[in-house]
Design a protein around this nucleic acid. Structure first.
Lengths: 198, 198
DNA sequence: GATATATTTTACCAGTCGGTCAACTATAAG
DNA sequence: CTTATAGTTGACCGACTGGTAAAATATATC
């Protein structure tokens, strides 16, 4: 009972966008409230602090990345290496129409917050760990199917995550999304490589 | 004439350290001044603004990275791939004794500032471009010496920069420097790979 | 329709931010 | 020794920060 409201999801969406393109410290709660069309007092009704907001915003973005990057890229029946190319390419597509290249939401927050806040760092770590385990599963399945030679799946998976995050970082530094597409070829090579066989 | 001072280099050193482990927005000028043992008024005698400080701090760090990473890694006569391994390893050594893993100075600033300040972004871009060109030269020399098969030097060089930045990012997320050493092996494979030959 | 309660509104707080300024001091150079 | 000047000091500013509190309001439920 009492009145209902969609202010909370609006705040989460606004926070997702603003943290993404300005970073955590560069965005004030007032600015997020303005973007969401919510009063600051209402903000503190839904979130006890800015830190709680960013924790919730991270969860919301995990969901989005899962649905718009992970599932589309790794559910097809094309060769494994092509699935990784697709992963990079989907990020490219998602960023291509933006005014400026804003990097990866999680990578941005990692570099800005993980020395400040151990809880945030742990959350981000477990997200990257989830990606790594997911990549590893995909690679392992391909190895078992004979599509790939035996390789160090853990290290390769982690390297693919690193390459992805590094590519997003360079794309932001150069303000040029096409770097993501360009380096997707290296991800392909990395998967198909024979030199790291064991 | 007039009195002399080493306050400026002290401010640059303090700014380098504090920006490195807390980020740009999370560090105030007062904090930098305290760390450097300088009054805030004096700060503004040397630097017109915080933004000018970070620009100068970037230049100072370029010098340090050049002398402590680039030159040591790429001046030896070991095989090319080993030089890249050394590059990652030197970063590992530099970070291993720190209380927490703070990532790459330039990568950190890229993700925090390049959407705010076009001048900073351009400066960081040209630093990464310098690394890329340097890597490319090393690879090209190895190809011409017959030590490596023909490969897309530009793309490989950029991928190595991306892998490095991504590794530093993951190391920060996991708060575990050893990731840098671990992924150095992938850099080695990437250089020695045959699948990306043209 | 009454009412308990979920949400909104607004004014407010102390602290910190980047930055300014004018007076002061030490010293290098003549 | 004088003096021009490079450097230092500390008080100060307005704007903005994250966060609080209490009164007002709308509505789902009965």
């Amino acid at each position: 009972m009492g009145r209902t409201s969609d202010a909370k999801p609006r705040l989460l969406a606004a926070a997702g966008e603003l943290f993404q393109d300005k970073g955590y410290h560069a965005v004030g709660i007032q600015e997020i409230c303005d973007a969401a069309g919510v009063n600051k007092g209402s903000f503190y009704y839904f979130f006890p602090s800015k830190r709680d907001l960013v924790l919730a915003a991270i969860d919301a973005q995990v969901e989005i990345y899962q649905q718009e990057l992970m599932q589309p890229a790794f559910s097809s029946d094309v060769p494994v290496a092509e699935q990784f190319r697709q992963f990079f390419h989907l990020m490219y597509l998602a960023r291509r129409n933006l005014a400026s290249c804003t990097g990866c939401f999680f990578g941005n927050l990692t570099l800005e917050l993980s020395t400040h806040d151990e809880l945030v760092r742990g959350k981000l770590q477990s997200i990257f760990e989830g990606w790594t385990l997911g990549f590893e599963r995909v690679l392992q399945a391909a190895v078992e199917a004979g599509a790939l030679p035996k390789l160090d799946t853990r290290r390769t998976a982690q390297a693919l995550v690193a390459l992805f995050e590094g590519s997003a970082l360079l794309a932001k530094a150069y303000n040029d999304v096409s770097i993501l597409d360009d380096l997707s070829q290296v991800a392909v090579n990395l998967v198909n490589q024979t030199s790291s066989t064991i």
